[in-house]
Amino acid sequence: MTAPRLHVHKLRAGFGGKEVLHDLELEIAAGTVTAIIGPSGCGKSTFIRTLNRMHELVGGAWVKGRVLLDEQDLYASDVDPVLLRRRVGMVFQKPNPFPSMSIRDNVVAGLRLTGTLSRGQTEAIAERALRQAALWDEVKDRLDDPGAALSGGQQQRLCIARALAVDPQVLLMDEPCSALDPIATARIEDLIHSLRGRYTIVLVTHSMQQAARVSERTAFLLRGELVEVDDTRKIFTKPNDRRTEDYITGRFG
């Protein structure tokens, strides 16, 4: 077996004196979609933000333990979080296209922000990323329109295109459909299916149905503890742990 793309080892994290994540242990294989489910406040978002070191941007945040990306510890002292985030992209709960930019500029914003956009590449990169995000056909005639003029679902796909444009290995998605209607959600889920294999996707979701639909592996977090991680089919038909069963069948506290 090859080494996992992401290996979370004895990970603890928190804010100030409060520990939010307790001793997480998780391996994520390259090219898979892993869903993180759990009740509000269980630490899902904190967890996903430790994977691209966004967690530490909040005052008082701390992390212990290790997160290995291709066997390299993200929290080693010589790792530059800015460089790391170009390999581990992220999509947020609410679509956040940059309001002052056109659709095209939004897509290449990552390259421009990092000063790695070479002249004359803009069009090609924008088209490739928009095609990957299944948005090209809808916006190809209006690339100069502001990104904020798109519908919510399109904005979210624009944000995915923006993340893909910097060519990451891992894509973190923090409840990417929570602000979208069912059709827009279905488009994003279809997109996740098409990105599988090429990217390693970690998806935090409130919707168990969504986790069941798009992921191969599902991890259940409860009060900062990783209760169970298993094949998604197994988790949703016959979970091992009683707490998982209670949560996914709606018998929770």
Partner: peptide
């Protein structure tokens, strides 16, 4: 209506 999971689904 409920999209039941696990034991309920079974």
């Amino acid at each position: 209506r409920w999209q039941p999971m696990a034991s309920d689904l079974r």
